[in-house]
């Protein structure tokens, strides 16, 4: 395995682990300041929204501040959708470095996310599309697109489900 493949894989594994272990601040630190976080919606059987700025997505955050708002919400213990917090296990696989251009790396992965909470157990699956960039020598996530393969969602979603 190349050094880059190893580094990218570790970063994706680390992100999932931090989400499952609820280490929110460390999780946010994996993202660059200008990181885009995008969960498209399905337009038809074949296509999702492809213009996040001008189409209706499930979640679209333009920078890390958007992720910080999410963590604020989770940590406030005042959002009843997140109290008690669902337990999650992310199982990530099929990590592939798709390409490298200038200072950015593109990578894809698959994720099975099992959630246990008030509704019982629930398993969802998604495709990950990452962009990563070196920030002070450290590889960070500059863009994450999460495509659920379900077009109709079972209940609400938040970052820990994704």
């Amino acid at each position: 395995m190349s050094d880059l493949q190893q580094e990218v894989t570790n970063l994706i594994y680390l992100e999932s682990t931090l989400l499952d272990r609820r280490e929110w601040d460390e999780w946010i630190d994996l993202y660059t300041e200008d990181a885009v976080y995008w969960v498209p919606s399905w337009v038809n059987e074949e296509e999702t929204t492809d213009d996040p700025e001008l189409q209706l997505n499930l979640i679209y955050l333009r920078n890390r501040g958007g992720l910080e708002d999410r963590v604020f919400r989770i940590e406030s213990r005042d959002s009843y959708a997140s109290v008690p917090l669902d337990r999650t296990v992310h199982v990530v696989g099929n990590v592939l470095v798709a390409g490298e251009m200038d200072d950015e790396v593109e990578a894809t992965a698959n994720c099975i996310i099992h959630t246990y909470g008030k509704k019982g157990g629930l398993t969802r699956a998604s495709l990950y599309d990452f962009r990563m960039r070196r920030d002070d020598g450290e590889l960070k996530i500059s863009r994450k697109k999460i495509t659920f393969i379900d077009d109709r969602l079972e209940g609400p979603i938040d970052v820990y489900h994704l």
Partner: peptide
């Protein structure tokens, strides 16, 4: 209607 739809189930 803006392109995109949100579909979800509620118990």
């Amino acid at each position: 209607i803006i392109t995109g739809v949100q579909e979800y189930d509620v118990e």
